[in-house]
Amino acid sequence: MRTIVITGGTDGIGRGLALRYLAGGERVVAVGSDPGKGGRLLREAVRLGAGERAEFVQADLGSAARSRAVAAELADRHPVLDALVLGAYRYNPRRIRTAEGLEQTFALYVLSRHLLAEGLRGSLERAPGTPVILSLCGVGGITAGTMRWDDLQHERAPYRAGRVTMQGARANDLLGVSFAERHAGGRTRYVLYNPGFVATGMTQSLRQPMRGLTKAMAALFAQPVDRAVGPVAALLDDPPTEPLSAFLRGRPVRLDRPEFDPANAARLHTALLSLPGEAFRDGTRG
């Protein structure tokens, strides 16, 4: 029986993966911020006969301190992990500053993924099979998104939700490159996966008329969650042999593209380490 941690595990693809693996006899730890959605997932697990194998951890991963704490708690409770799915994301139509002084999209979409991957790496390395980290919604080679190296949290530039989101997606690609470079001798595989347009609950955070337009487009063009889950599960069940790989809607993406530049990956890692000590402390220095 494998143990799989899924951030964003109560919505969309994360929830679909959680239910798939619970039904298949695996142990699932779903991390999410909404206790109501967490409760519904646990009740569904009971209905599937998997109540004892389902765990919900309520956490707002937009807090760096909470992300660190969740990683430490899970590493303590689960000294052996088989897979970590990084799927937590929230579309913020306006700028939100966290209590730690971080821009929320950056904190949730970028920083928490780094903290969880680093904090749980030890548990993953102890897996009997091939451990894997799968990061959902990285750009995966799409030529979109710009890294604003002099203003990563868009403190000086006007806030544009789409631009901030796409920079986060680009940063997620670089997080994968950085992880693979810094832990080259490890067993954990890192997979970047962009599922394309999927019918999820993201539209609830949009303002009108964009919410209605997006819903209409989703009804016409988006793939249902159940269909999107299959290719993701295939990569978790049989991880690639390479330390780092990238996929766009199930198709491999070459890693020699400029979007995966190791120098930029190292630059991002250095930028994360330069954040104030109370906002960022993960034990990876040196």
Rank of each mutant, 00 (worst) to 15 (best):
T105K: 14
T105P: 06
A107V: 14
L108G: 05
Y109K: 10
L111S: 09
S112R: 04
R113V: 06
R113I: 03
R113H: 15
L115I: 15
A117N: 08
E118P: 05
L120I: 08
G122C: 04
S123D: 08
P128E: 06
P128K: 00
G129H: 05
V132M: 10
V132K: 05
I133F: 04
S135E: 10
L136N: 01
V139R: 14
T143D: 14
T143I: 01
A144P: 00
A144F: 03
T146M: 06
M147T: 02
M147C: 05
W149R: 11
D150C: 09
D151Y: 11
L152Y: 04
E155Q: 15
E155I: 10
E155K: 13
R156A: 15
A157G: 10
P158Q: 12
P158W: 09
R160L: 13
G162T: 14
G162Y: 11
R163G: 10
R163C: 08
V164N: 11
V164F: 08
M166S: 09
A171P: 05
N172S: 10
D173Q: 10
L174I: 03
G176M: 06
G176D: 04
A180E: 07
A180I: 06
A180R: 05
R182E: 14
H183D: 00
H183W: 06
A184T: 02
A184N: 02
G185C: 06
G186S: 02
R187L: 01
T188R: 01
T188G: 01
R189V: 05
R189S: 02
Y190I: 00
V191P: 07
Y193S: 05
N194T: 00
G196T: 02
G196D: 04
G196M: 03
V198T: 11
V198H: 03
A199T: 01
T200V: 03
M202E: 01
M202S: 07
M202R: 07
T203A: 15
T203R: 04
S205H: 14
R207Q: 13
R207M: 07
P209L: 06
G212N: 07
G212P: 07
A216R: 15
A219W: 12
L220Y: 02
L220V: 14
F221E: 03
Q223V: 11
V225Y: 07
D226E: 15
R227P: 01
R227V: 09
A228I: 03
V229N: 09
G230T: 15
G230A: 15
P231K: 10
P231L: 08
P231N: 12
V232L: 10
A234C: 06
L235V: 11
L236F: 12
E242D: 14
P243D: 11
L244D: 03
S245G: 10
A246H: 08
L248V: 04
R249G: 09
